[in-house]
Structure formats: structure tokens, C-alpha cells
Design a protein around this nucleic acid. Structure first.
Length: 323
DNA sequence: GCGACAG
DNA sequence: ATCTTGTCGC
């Protein structure tokens, strides 16, 4: 049963979301905080993570959230966690995080509790970081809430603060010679918001890299290039492939195209395969912990008839918003 | 009516 | 994000 998309949020909700973004934005660290980030070979970096959310085609509510961890520099998958989720917030440009980030935070929290040794040292996020309407895209949001270094990687240019995908921009793209070449994306205020990166030699379309959290733009661009076997950085690419595959396996061969949420419970088992122990991946329990952030959407729209002001009393890394 | 629009 | 097969090229 394909559920309908939630409509556009009320203006009041968008105001609350903007306030939350403004508050959390003050916690973003846009410089290198780890030793490996300043090393030319990234020595000390062993695990890179990627997250993604894939959707069920006729359904804008059912989706698969995935978190993968790859070894660096080999880029082999060490950990994979896919789970079906029901999205409550609609997609609104500029507010992507309110739709997807609660489930990604949950996935990181699971990993932190069950397999802390596999915690990635940096997370690649499908979407922008500070290259955003209000300087706080999904990569910043996830970074602040998890306290992990994050890199925003978008496939299309978000045209904000004077940035335009115009003829001049396209010409700059055409002038990129080989993989690793990039040019700065300067906002109207004179600030460099991100970089357009040719992720490998034969890629026509660039990647738009921006700082998410706890990492400089220079290191973010260099590491992104270092994680690209193909156009899309391998951590995000694997998260995407595996989440889509998970949906196909879960909803595919059943005959009836109807969604069966009860089946997903059985399938909720992330596999951890440290050091290729055996062919059979170790089972990891996967109970969902309700200690992570409730989305503002869930707090205000369906459940709170009276405006609960979305007051945030306390924020600290990992910055978990508390009502 | 027209352009914009991360995922 | 998703709708969609084969096809052309390295």
C-alpha cells in the first residue's frame, strides 16, 4: 500500500526548522580537528563511512536508510546496515535533513553501541554541507548531531547565495583537466562555500563538495577524490547500491507489490564483517533506541495541536535536541 | 505564466 | 529521489 507524501509543511513548521538550523549551525566546526586530516597520505585514517536513503518507487513514505563503513585506503566494505523506515517529513529544498537525518543518526547510534570499533572516522553524506540556503545543509546537521567529521557531496549545484549553473560555470567545468581538479564556489558574500570537483579523469559532471563538520574544505576535497573509484565517492555509492538492493530484495520477489512493514523487522540485521572472519557475517542485534532526536516535524505536526514552541533546552555534542 | 528545485 | 533498455564507446 503506497502511502502518500506529506504535503508542504506549514509556515510555522518551516520557521521552527529554520530556528533549529540556526541554533545547530553555531556548533559547526569548519576546520580539521583530526591528525589524519592534515597528513598528506591521510595516514591514521582507517575507516570511512557513507549514508544514503533510497525510496520505494510508488511510495514517498517508505524508504531504506543505510550506513556503510569502508576500509581506507582499500575501500572495501566492513560494515553494512540497511533498514526500512517510514519518512514523516516531506522533502523541501533547504530542509532535507528534517526528512532523512533522524534515521541516519539512529544508524550511527546503533553502530556506536553494538560495534564501536567499526565507527567511521569520517562520514560522506549525500547532499550539501555549508553550501546551503542558510549555511547548514544535511551534512552539517548529521555532523553536529553525531559529532563525527562529515563531508557534503552533492551531484547537482544548489543555486544559492549567487551561485548559478550558468554558461560561465559550465565553462569552468569544461576546463577541469583530470580527476582531482577543482575550482572554488564563491558565494555572493565572498566566502568559498564549496568546490566543484572532477572526481575522476573521465567524468563530465563534477561533484559539489562542501564542509559538513570537523573538517576543512581542502581536506574534504582531497579525501573525496581519494575515495572515488567512480564518479560518486565509494562510501556513498555503496550505501546507495545496498539500500536500493535491500528494497529490491524486500519488496521484489513477493509477487504482490504491496509493502509489508512486518517483514522488515525480521530483516533488520546489520552485518559486521571485521577482518573477513567467515563467509557468514556476524549477527548484530538491532533494537531501535529511542534516545535520538525526534524530528521537529513529528513533534509539532501530527502530535502537538498546541504549539510546543520547539524549545531546545540543551545541546551538546553529540548534539541531541531536547524538547 | 515561468523559473527553481540538495535528495 | 524515481520513472526506464538498450546502446554506444573504451
Amino acid at each position: 500500500m503506497a502511502r502518500k507524501a506529506a504535503g508542504r509543511p506549514q509556515e510555522e513548521t518551516l520557521s521552527l526548522w529554520k530556528r533549529e538550523q540556526a541554533l545547530l549551525k553555531t556548533l559547526v566546526v569548519d576546520r580539521d580537528t583530526e591528525a589524519w586530516q592534515r597528513d598528506l597520505a591521510f595516514s591514521g585514517l582507517q575507516r570511512v563511512g557513507g549514508v544514503d536513503v533510497s525510496f520505494v518507487k510508488g511510495d514517498s513514505v517508505s524508504a531504506c536508510a543505510s550506513l556503510v563503513v569502508l576500509s581506507y585506503p582499500e575501500l572495501e566494505v566492513m560494515y553494512e546496515d540497511c533498514r526500512m523506515v517510514s519518512l514523516t517529513a516531506p522533502y523541501v529544498s533547504g530542509f532535507l535533513a528534517f526528512r532523512e537525518v533522524p534515521f541516519l543518526v539512529d544508524a550511527v547510534q546503533q553502530l556506536r553501541e553494538k560495534e564501536p570499533r567499526l565507527m567511521p572516522q569520517v562520514l560522506f553524506v549525500d547532499g550539501n554541507g555549508v553550501l546551503h540556503h542558510r549555511g547548514f545543509g544535511v551534512a552539517c546537521h548529521l555532523g553536529v548531531l553525531t559529532d563525527l567529521p562529515c563531508i557534503g557531496v552533492a551531484k547537482k549545484l544548489l543555486q544559492v547565495d549567487g551561485l548559478e549553473n550558468n554558461a560561465l560555470h559550465k565553462e569552468k567545468i569544461r576546463l577541469l583537466k583530470g580527476g582531482g581538479d577543482s575550482f572554488p564556489l564563491m558565494g555572493g558574500s565572498g566566502t568559498v562555500l564549496g568546490m566543484a570537483l572532477k572526481s575522476h579523469d573521465h567524468s563530465t559532471k563534477p561533484l559539489y563538495v562542501s564542509v559538513g563538520h570537523k573538517m576543512s574544505l581542502e581536506a574534504a576535497v582531497r579525501l573525496t577524490h581519494g575515495c572515488c573509484k567512480f564518479r560518486i565517492p565509494e562510501p556513498v555509492r555503496q550505501a546507495d547500491i545496498r539500500s536500493r538492493d535491500y528494497i529490491r530484495r524486500t519488496l521484489g520477489v513477493q509477487g504482490a507489490p504491496a509493502l509489508r512493514p512486518e517483514r522488515s523487522k525480521k530483516a533488520q540485521r546489520p552485518k559486521a564483517c571485521p577482518q573477513g572472519a567467515s563467509e557468514e557475517p556476524a549477527e548484530v542485534s538491532c533494537c531501535v533506541i529511542n534516545c535520538s532526536v525526534k524530528s521537529t516535524w513529528q513533534r509539532t505536526e501530527p502530535t502537538c495541536p498546541s504549539p510546543c514552541e520547539g524549545a531546545i533546552l540543551e545541546v551538546h555534542p553529540p548534539a541531541l535536541a531536547v524538547i
